[in-house]
Write a protein that binds this DNA or RNA. Structure first.
Lengths: 119, 119
DNA sequence: TTTATATATGAATAACTGTTCATATGTTCA
DNA sequence: TGAACATATGAACAGTTATTCATATATAAA
């Protein structure tokens, strides 16, 4: 029941050397971790809403809070996360800081997600 | 400092009626929530690893557990989440259940994410 | 400098989530 | 039917996270 000190299925399952091939072709752990971290940023409805708003126009924190019906602090915390993930950029103009989408990847990632849901 | 009973920025910010337009164009809350729920599924490195393994070939739960170095139970729990999100499908064959990617959206969503990271 | 406004941030809390453990369900074979 | 194997699942626990509250930082104007 143990081959090379590894538990595997007895009959039906693919052989251990094929599993090795699969394992070899996997991207390294760091890359997969970064990928999960990125999607984690999209995985919150508040942040998704912020991104959708920014699809339309850049806005300052104050107005984002108003549109979303949230406190300034909550929005600011989420903007920090979005900025760290390089999904949005901040541009100070006087007292205000205007946030905008960082690039078009944001849109295409969300569009792909939407396609999956709508099918 | 209050226009229409709503706090907004005094000088720099976009006017309240423009905020209304932005709000109107937002997809309804349910859709944004579903979208966040979908990305939440991608936002875990274990599930990302499972999907990457399934890019190569369909596998039974037992072998998935072996490749990933995880317990059968942990993998099974995650497969349930992936199945609920319609990202994978399960096909029973005797005692084993073989899991495979549900469709190509999975691949394209992950590819988009990878593009963003690699830039 | 003082005051007012806009934003950022640390700490605390409540809610959520992934893994483990034990066990149940489903399938095959004797 | 009973035994063995593969998978599924409920409960509990630990770790994570989004919001709130209080407060700090940054800018502009008086």
């Amino acid at each position: 029941m143990a081959i090379n000190d590894v538990e595997i299925c007895e009959d039906n399952c693919i052989h251990i050397d094929r599993l090795e091939k699969v394992r070899e072709k996997l991207p390294d752990v760091d890359e997969l971790y970064d990928l999960a971290e990125l999607f984690k940023v999209f995985g919150d409805s508040t942040r998704i809403r912020i991104l959708y708003v920014l699809f339309q126009s850049e806005l300052c924190v104050c107005d984002l809070a108003e549109v979303l019906g949230m406190t300034q602090s909550a929005v600011s915390h989420q903007l920090k996360i979005l900025k760290q993930a390089k999904l949005v950029t901040g541009r100070r103009e006087g007292k205000s800081v205007f946030y905008a989408l960082a690039d078009d990847h944001v849109r295409s990632i969300i569009d792909q997600g939407k396609e999956h849901i709508d099918e």
